[in-house]
C-alpha cells in the first residue's frame, strides 16, 4: 500500500508548482537580476516533475535509491549553475526549502486527520532536508571550481615576461612564490627566452613580500633552469630586510647574480652584452680628449 503522500502529491503537481513559485517570488532575496522569472519557473517545474516522479516510484525516503538518481542530477545541475552565476548560499538554499513549504501546504490542505498528516510531513521533511544537503554540497563544489579557475587565471596573468631590450628579459614577480607558481614562472620565462633568443633574464622580486628558505630555493631553481637553457639570470629588487633575512636564514646566494634594483640589474645586463648607455654628445667629447 502506498503512503498517502505518494498517492496524493503527484496528482497535485500544478498546485504545488503554483504555491512554490509564489513563495519564491515573494521572497525578498529573489534575484531577478541574475535570473528571469521564466527561467526560474522552468527550473522549478523541471525539478518538481522529477521529484514527484521519484516519489511515485519509490516510496522510501532514501535518496540513494535508484529512483532518486535523476533528482540528484537535476538538483546538482541547478546548484552548480547557481554557484557559478553568483547566487548566494541563502538564495540557493531557499529554492529547495520553499519547495518543502509548498509540499507541506498541499498535504495539510488534503489530509484532514492530524494523525495521518504527521508521518507524511515527517517524510517530506526528511526528503527535502536531504535535497538541501545535496544543494549545499554541490553549491560549494561549484564555488571551489570557480576559485580553482580563478587561481589558475591569476597565476597566468600575474607573471608577465617583458622584453626590455633586445636580448634582455625582465620578469617582475608580485606576491608569494609557491611551488606551483614557480613552475608557471619558470615555464613562461624559459619559453620567452627561446622565443626572443634572449641571453639575460632579470627576475625582479620587489613585489615579493617575504623571502624564506623555500622561496629562496624556488628562486635558485629558476636561476639554475635558466642557465641550463644557456641564458644568465640576475635577481633584482632585493630590499634591505630581505637581504637580512637571507643571511640570517643561512641561504647561500653566492652563485647567483643579485642586484639591489632593477636599474642596477639592467646596467649589469648591458655590460654583459657589451652595451653602453651614454648621454648624447658625451661620446665625441671623450674620443677627442
Amino acid at each position: 500500500m502506498k503512503s498517502l503522500s505518494a498517492q496524493l502529491l503527484p496528482s497535485k503537481q500544478v498546485e504545488i508548482l503554483d504555491i512554490w513559485i509564489k513563495l519564491q517570488l515573494k521572497n525578498e532575496g529573489l534575484r531577478s537580476d541574475l535570473m528571469s522569472n521564466d527561467a526560474l519557473k522552468r527550473e522549478s517545474e523541471e525539478l518538481l516533475k522529477t521529484i514527484l516522479e521519484a516519489i511515485r516510484n519509490d516510496d522510501t525516503t532514501d535518496i540513494k535509491g535508484e529512483a532518486y538518481d535523476k533528482v540528484v542530477e537535476v538538483l546538482a545541475g541547478i546548484s552548480l549553475s547557481r554557484a557559478s552565476n553568483g547566487f548566494s548560499p541563502r538564495e540557493t538554499a531557499y529554492f529547495v526549502f520553499s519547495l518543502k513549504e509548498a509540499l507541506i501546504t498541499v498535504l495539510e490542505k488534503n489530509i484532514a486527520e492530524p494523525k495521518e498528516l504527521y508521518p507524511e510531513i515527517v517524510k517530506v521533511n526528511k526528503l527535502l532536508d536531504d535535497f538541501g544537503l545535496i544543494t549545499f554540497e554541490t553549491f560549494i563544489k561549484g564555488r571551489e571550481e570557480v576559485i580553482l579557475r580563478q587561481t589558475s587565471e591569476i597565476t597566468e596573468i600575474s607573471t608577465p615576461v617583458i622584453q626590455v631590450w633586445s636580448g634582455i628579459l625582465a620578469l617582475p614577480i608580485i606576491g608569494t612564490l609557491d611551488s606551483a607558481r614557480t613552475q608557471v614562472v619558470m615555464e613562461n620565462l624559459l619559453l620567452k627566452i627561446v622565443e626572443t633568443e634572449s641571453t639575460i633574464a632579470i627576475l625582479d622580486i620587489s613585489g615579493v613580500p617575504a623571502v624564506d628558505s623555500l622561496v629562496a630555493q624556488h628562486l635558485i631553481k629558476t636561476v639554475a633552469a635558466t642557465r641550463l637553457m644557456g641564458a644568465e639570470c640576475i635577481i633584482s629588487g632585493i630590499r634591505p630586510e630581505i637581504a637580512q633575512t637571507i643571511v640570517h636564514l643561512g641561504i647561500d646566494l653566492s652563485n647567483i647574480n643579485t642586484k639591489a634594483s632593477l636599474a642596477h640589474a639592467l646596467r649589469t645586463a648591458f655590460s654583459l652584452l657589451k652595451l653602453e648607455v651614454r648621454k648624447v654628445g658625451e661620446y665625441s667629447k671623450n674620443t677627442h680628449a
Binding site: I193, E197, G230
Partner: peptide, 26 residues
Amino acid sequence: VGMQPAVAITLIELGLPMTGVHTALN
C-alpha cells in the same frame, strides 16, 4: 645547446643542475 624549457625544468627538479656543462640557447 637548445635544451627545451620543459627538459630544463625537469632536470632542476630531478636535482641535476649540470653545473660543469656549458650551455647556449641555439
